[in-house]
Amino acid sequence: MAPLRSTRPRLLSAAALVLGATLALSACSSSSSGGGESSGAAKVSKTSSSSQYRGTVLSKHFDKPDLVLNDTSGQPYDLKARTAGRTVLLFFGYTSCPDVCPTTMGDIGVAMAKLTPEQRQKIDIVFVSTDPERDTPQVLRTWLDSMGKDFVGLTGDLAKVKAAAKPLGIMVEDPVVAANGSVTSTHGAQVLAFLPGDDKAHLLYMAGTTTDTYRHDLELLAQGVAV
């Protein structure tokens, strides 16, 4: 037994060397790739080890915003009233966003499609447009239909959208057009999950959250598992 134990430190140091080598290599190859994904992935790690959920458990429970906009049929939609006592996933974005918005909503759509109809019925997916000028109810409906026919799309006064997003820590700003015509859009890419018990946000999902994570957590949410 004793000789075996004595090899352990060597094994460990060999492992450490391998790890060091891997780090050196990856530092070399990823030096200029932006790193948006990796920083997002790092933030996905949950903060509470006691939770069954894979999303980030929020220590501050945000109120559901008091927001009345038009839905995709052009009718007024009171977010608080219409979703009271229901589980809600809320995301702010815009349809002429080729990368983060369709990726996030598409991955949620795939996860929702894997739930049973009974589970799906308990969850509202709400997308709020940060580009109401271009995102008319019809544009929004067509776009959302690619990801979920029953997803709720809201559009209207951008000032109201900004006011609703700010207390949630979600940044929404007017697009900035540079002299060369390039556009910088600012909109927080995080998804918040509001629980039916208190209508407050308890979970956060950063951009880059996988379909598996969404499916895992949506099933727990549909079952009413405590965060």
């Binding site: 932006g34 920083s39 997002g40 983060v100 859009s185 600012t186 950063m206």
Partner: peptide
Amino acid sequence: RSTEQTMEE
């Protein structure tokens, strides 16, 4: 390039 908050050319 997308980051957590922005998308820029």
